[in-house]
Amino acid sequence: MKKKLVVLSGAGISAESGLKTFRDSDGLWENHRIEDVASPEGFARDPQMVLDFYNARRKQLLEVEPNEAHLLVVELEQYFDVHVITQNVDDLHERAGSTNVIHLHGELRKVRPLNSLTKIITWETDLHLGDMSTAGIQLRPHIVWFGEPVPEMEKAIEICESADIFLIVGTSLQVYPAAGLIHYVTEKCGVYLIDPNLENSFVQQENFYKMSAVEGMRKLTPVIKNQS
């Protein structure tokens, strides 16, 4: 039986494909205040602006490709039972070929009715006011906004509890509840961290790769393969 490798990924891995991250520029996301485009209150105030914002994000996503870090995560499936838990709303892990992906914060290429967490619809084009579910309810982006529950969290916790190796790549471990997943791995679990900006207080120094996602995955992949 293959060992279980759990990968927790964040914005840093997507940034190397050309997707911008809101934490890189004074808390603004594409020149918008986060609370205006990533909260239920923001949507209630100006739904058209919020829909336009995510339409632009969806369009940008279709213009980029998975990078080497995504592909190296896929390569590890040859050696491990790999589960990706991502804070990212893009589908770059899936497009790279990862087969087990949990999106904690939702997905850009999916929508749902305003009154449902579970009626999720694949959506490839722009979303507009007046786009309704079959029950006549306005559709919204399938994104977990600030202040909303994280439906996939319990499943993510269960996966972490049974991990043999836990790899954190491209996340600052500042966004909760996702950042708390590190506390659910066992003492026997090997924990590795790739991030160019963090001051390491999470893992043993020899398991901390203070570098970009691509560079870190290049260096760490052979190390992890040796543990299969």
Results as ranks from 00 to 15, higher is better:
residue 153 M to W: 05
residue 150 V to N: 11
residue 132 M to G: 01
residue 89 V to D: 01
residue 122 T to C: 02
residue 123 W to S: 00
residue 101 V to K: 06
residue 136 G to Q: 08
residue 120 I to W: 05
residue 128 H to F: 03
residue 75 E to G: 01
residue 144 V to Y: 14
residue 153 M to C: 03
residue 113 P to F: 04
residue 98 S to R: 04
residue 132 M to R: 15
residue 75 E to Q: 12
residue 152 E to N: 13
residue 124 E to F: 00
residue 97 G to V: 04
residue 99 T to N: 03
residue 87 Q to Y: 09
residue 76 L to A: 03
residue 147 G to K: 14
residue 139 L to R: 03
residue 111 V to K: 02
residue 133 S to G: 06
residue 115 N to T: 14
residue 107 E to K: 13
residue 130 G to E: 09
residue 145 W to P: 05
residue 118 T to L: 12
residue 129 L to A: 06
residue 130 G to Q: 04
residue 92 L to E: 00
residue 75 E to S: 11
residue 83 H to K: 14
residue 80 F to P: 07
residue 115 N to M: 07
residue 106 G to D: 12
residue 79 Y to R: 06
residue 133 S to V: 14
residue 109 R to C: 12
residue 156 A to P: 09
residue 151 P to F: 03
residue 65 E to K: 08
residue 100 N to F: 06
residue 93 H to P: 01
residue 93 H to M: 09
residue 107 E to A: 10
residue 70 H to F: 08
residue 125 T to I: 01
residue 142 H to L: 11
residue 131 D to I: 00
residue 75 E to W: 14
residue 74 V to N: 02
residue 150 V to Y: 15
residue 146 F to H: 04
residue 84 V to H: 12
residue 90 D to K: 08
residue 95 R to A: 14
residue 125 T to E: 13
residue 137 I to V: 10
residue 153 M to I: 15
residue 149 P to Y: 11
residue 112 R to Y: 04
residue 98 S to T: 15
residue 111 V to D: 05
residue 102 I to L: 15
residue 144 V to P: 11
residue 65 E to V: 10
residue 141 P to Q: 04
residue 71 L to Y: 06
residue 85 I to L: 14
residue 143 I to M: 07
residue 128 H to R: 11
residue 81 D to R: 11
residue 136 G to A: 10
residue 78 Q to R: 15
residue 101 V to H: 02
residue 69 A to Y: 01
residue 139 L to Q: 09
residue 110 K to A: 06
residue 74 V to T: 06
residue 153 M to S: 01
residue 132 M to Y: 10
residue 151 P to L: 01
residue 104 L to A: 02
residue 90 D to L: 15
residue 74 V to G: 08
residue 145 W to K: 06
residue 132 M to L: 15
residue 128 H to E: 12
residue 86 T to I: 08
residue 87 Q to W: 10
residue 122 T to W: 12
residue 107 E to M: 13
residue 78 Q to P: 08
residue 80 F to W: 11
residue 108 L to D: 00
residue 106 G to E: 01
residue 97 G to M: 07
residue 118 T to S: 13
residue 102 I to R: 05
residue 91 D to S: 15
residue 125 T to R: 06
residue 68 E to Q: 10
residue 154 E to Y: 10
residue 104 L to R: 09
residue 111 V to W: 00
residue 131 D to R: 11
residue 74 V to H: 13
residue 136 G to V: 04
residue 91 D to G: 15
residue 153 M to Y: 13
residue 117 L to N: 13
residue 107 E to H: 03
residue 91 D to Q: 10
residue 92 L to I: 11
residue 98 S to L: 12
residue 126 D to Q: 07
